[in-house]
Amino acid sequence: MLKDLFVEKHWESFKKVIFYTFCGLVCVFLIMPNFIVVPISFSGARFLEFPPKTYSWQWYQNYFETEEWVSATITSFEVAILVTICATILGSLTAYGLVRGRFPGKNIINSFIISPMVTPVLVTAVAIYKIYSDLGLTGTLIGFTLAHTIMALPFVVIVMTANLRGINVEVEQAARSLGANRITTLRRVIFPLALPGMIAGGLFAFLISFDELIIALFISSPTLSTLPKKLWDGIRTEINPTIAAVSTLLVLLSVLVLLGAGMARKYFEKKTQ
């Protein structure tokens, strides 16, 4: 009996060890590939070497001195910022309409707005490519912005719908009953409450645009292409660590965005308290 209990107790802790080890390994699996590029980007060798024997900045230098990389990066930032603005505004309005409105076919519209997320991106990309060819929108800033806005919209709508559901209708009704019209209510009451959600949705939109590859593969031109498109070409053609340097910078960007999001959330939590 006592022995059984002993075994059982150890078995229990043994199971716990296995469970935690497993979860730990999964976390390593999730995280490690994002950081493996960091040491390689500082390698002194032209070829893949791990761990690097010598270290240098040359691949970062190469990145900053290659016009194509720099212009692709600038384009990506331009597009992503425009997309953030467009998608956040459009997505927030849509979410507001969906949460507050009561009209026939609302659920269908909801599913419809989300559909770019679940439509095979390649099919979307080809369709957009065809229409853009007719309209002369390939290789233009506005073309990229519109296409990426469509891709980012579902994410903003999802985030904003959750956010607006959390805002009590009574707050709004109270404002209305005090004589404020809808626009004033939106601006003075809803907007401040929805701001954290809009920031989160905007970050989503920014990163989705910044990382978007498949549409860029079709609508890029040699004079205007985004960073993921350039990275795609690079990964297939050059094994030298410039790619690792660019990847490291992208990882850094993700870290910054996540930190920014966390800080924004803390700030708003404090404010609401």
Binding site: N34, F210, D211, L231, I235, A244, S247, V251, S254, L258
Partner: peptide, 20 residues
């Protein structure tokens, strides 16, 4: 963040990492 982090990293970076 550990789980979300890959979510926020460019798919190309991750694929390149796996190639490496």
């Amino acid at each position: 963040p550990l789980v979300l982090f890959p979510f926020w990293t460019s798919i190309l970076v991750r694929m390149y990492a796996w190639m490496v």
